[in-house]
Structures are given as C-alpha cells and as structure tokens.
C-alpha cells in the first residue's frame, strides 16, 4: 500500500462515511425523540435515489400513489378519531390540505416532463414526493402506539421496513438505477483525482450537519425537539406536543434520508432493497455514539466508512464481518464506562 492508494481509499471511506453520518444523525434524532429505532430509514434513501432516477428517465413515478394511499388512510383514521369525540365529525382545512397535496403532486407529475427539468428542480421534486412519507408513517403507525414499550415500537418499525421494501419493488421494479452526476468536473492533484461528486456529498453533509446544529441550538422548534429528546414527560409538561415532536423528527428523518439518496445515486447503482444495509451502517455509527451523542455518532459513522474502505482493500471477503463486528468492542466499552439508567416503560 502506498500513499496514493491510502488517499483514494480515504476519499472513498469519507464519502460513504458522510452518508452514514447523515443517517446516523437522523436515526439518533428519531430514537431520542420517539424511542423508535427507525429501521425504514434506509428506504427513504433508496426511494430518494430511485425517484430521482425515475424522474430523470422521464418515467411515471408510481411511488406518488403510496403518498396518496397513506394520505387517505390518514384522513380516514382522523375521521374515526373525531367520531368518538363530542364535537362529531368536522372537516378541517388541514385535513383537506393533507388529501389535496398528494393528489396535486400526482397531477403535477403527470403533466410535467420531468426528464427535461434542471437537476435542482428534479431533486426538489424528489424531496416533495419522499419527505411527506416520514410524517405520514409516524401518524399512521407510530403515533397510535407512542406509549408502547420500545420493543413493540421496534417490531412495528421492522414491519414498516418490510412493507416498504415490498412497495419499493412494486413501484421501481427489481432493476437498479443510478443518476447523472451533478457535475462532470474532476480535480486532478498530484496523487489523487478528486471527483466533484465527492465534494458534493461531503459539502452537503457538512452543510446539513451545520444547519441541524443551528436548528437545534438557535430555533425554538429545534429546542423543543431537543427538550422532548432529553425528557419526554418534562417537555410535555412545558407544553411541547409529543405528536408534533414525533412528526417533526420523522419529517427530518425522511428529509435526510431522501437527500442522502439523491447524493449517493450518481456514485453507485441503488436497488429497491439497497437502503437497509446503508442505514444499518449508519446505525452502527449511532451505536458508537451510544444512541445519545450526535458528534460521537457522526465520528462513528466516518470510522465505519473508512474501516469499510480499508477492509475492502485488505480482506474483501470479510469486509462486512469486520464492519459489523466493530459494534461489539464499542458496546463493551460503552457498557463498562457509562452507568446505565433504566428508563421507565
């Protein structure tokens, strides 16, 4: 191994690590706020990448119908809930809006020739399609059982993951897809050719992390989410709605997931079931952060990315074994150094 190889592997590891870091952050966010281990996080990545590719190919985005179906299910369960209250059924404007949004989006997609749009618009459209899925999934599957033990939340998360993978196959087909790079420029250095997509991935990740940092420390909504993460009951007593906190964290999770998907799609082919393994590696990053610390989770995710790149070079047979075994020493270390407070269920 010489310097050049080390540099290329390092670059590769950092790109993947940056994506894992984003996912680690959103898994951590959702877990601390709602106690849900967001197994379907990877599906947002795969859906984001595949939707972008479908738009670029000028094919109809079938996934928008999932949005419509979930909106109808959501409206239905709202109405059911209203029927039990004293006021009876009232059609609120938010209910109408929730139903109108996916239908309008579907209509817009039908009329637009997405393949000819500039890439930024395509990316924005992708976000418009994928991001609402997060709050919708929370409303339908997790909000009704928000107080259940975390094991039940985990099982439901797995069920949602399995269902979404199946829907991904239906919506996008078994074939993989990748998208055109944001720009073709390459930067030549003495030892290393820096692909511009690398800069995009790393730049966007850093930017997103900074934005999240500002959001959590400077804005009232961010502080509310943090409060809900630190102490749910306390936050509730202070007037922070747990429903709002849950939806907001799922919103951020689907946003980060879809964005990661858009970032990674030009680098590699993504399949309907690719998301799981990507988010699993983000999850290991989050574990390294003890499922509490954001900076440690980000560092952990970068370590996972680098370790993956270097172990692929030295022992490609055992790459995943090495990466996933990493979790054991970290769990040992964490359980020995930190005293654990059992949360009341």
């Amino acid at each position: 191994m010489d310097m050049q190889i080390a540099l290329i592997l390092g670059q590769d590891g950092i790109i993947n690590g940056a994506i894992y870091a984003l996912l680690a952050l959103s898994i951590l966010l959702v877990f601390t706020v709602t106690r849900v281990l967001l197994i379907p996080q990877g599906e947002f990545v795969a859906f984001g990448a595949l939707t972008m590719a479908t738009l670029q190919a000028g094919e109809p985005v079938k996934l928008v119908w999932l949005l419509v179906a979930l909106a109808i299910a959501e409206a239905f369960s709202e109405l059911m809930l209203m029927r039990r209250t004293a006021q009876g059924i009232r059609i609120s404007s938010s209910l109408v809006l929730k139903l109108a949004y996916p239908l309008a989006l579907a209509a817009a997609l039908y009329h637009l020739n997405a393949a000819t749009l500039p890439m930024l618009v395509q990316a924005f459209l992708t976000l418009l399609i994928i991001v609402p899925l997060g709050p919708q999934l929370y409303r339908l599957f997790f909000q009704p059982i928000a107080n259940a033990p975390s094991l039940i939340l985990l099982i439901v998360a797995i069920a949602v993951h399995v269902a979404l993978v199946g829907i991904g196959l239906l919506a996008f087909g078994p074939g993989g897809a990748s998208t055109t790079p944001f720009s073709e420029a390459n930067f030549e250095f003495e030892l290393l050719t820096l692909n511009s997509q690398t800069l995009w991935v790393v730049g966007t990740s850093v930017l997103l992390i900074v934005v999240l940092y500002v959001f959590f420390n400077r804005t009232i909504y961010g502080k509310a989410l943090r409060a809900a993460a630190v102490n749910r009951t306390g936050a509730r007593l202070m007037g922070i709605s747990p429903v709002f906190a849950g939806k907001a964290s799922f919103f951020l999770a689907s946003l980060i997931g879809a964005l990661s998907g858009i970032l990674i799609a030009p680098i590699t082919a993504i399949y309907f079931d690719s998301g799981f393994l990507i988010s699993l590696k983000g999850f290991i990053g989050a574990i390294i952060g003890g499922l509490v610390s954001y900076p440690l989770a980000a560092v952990g995710a970068i370590i996972v990315g680098l370790l993956e790149a270097f172990s692929a070079f030295w022992a490609s047979d055992y790459k995943d074994v090495i990466v996933f075994t990493l979790i054991i020493p970290f769990l040992l270390w964490r359980s020995l150094t930190s005293h654990h407070v059992e949360e009341e269920e």
Binding site: I8, I15, T268, A309, S311, A312, S316, K319
Partner: peptide
Amino acid sequence: NEKFQRSDTSVTGQVLKILT
C-alpha cells in the same frame, strides 16, 4: 481474487487491490 457484496455501494478497495 477479490470479493464484494451485491449491496455494496463502493468497491474501490477491491479494485485498487486488483490494479496493484
């Protein structure tokens, strides 16, 4: 003689090994 996984998003490590 290198191995990769179907779900891998990067095979740079293996490819560099082959190139050497």
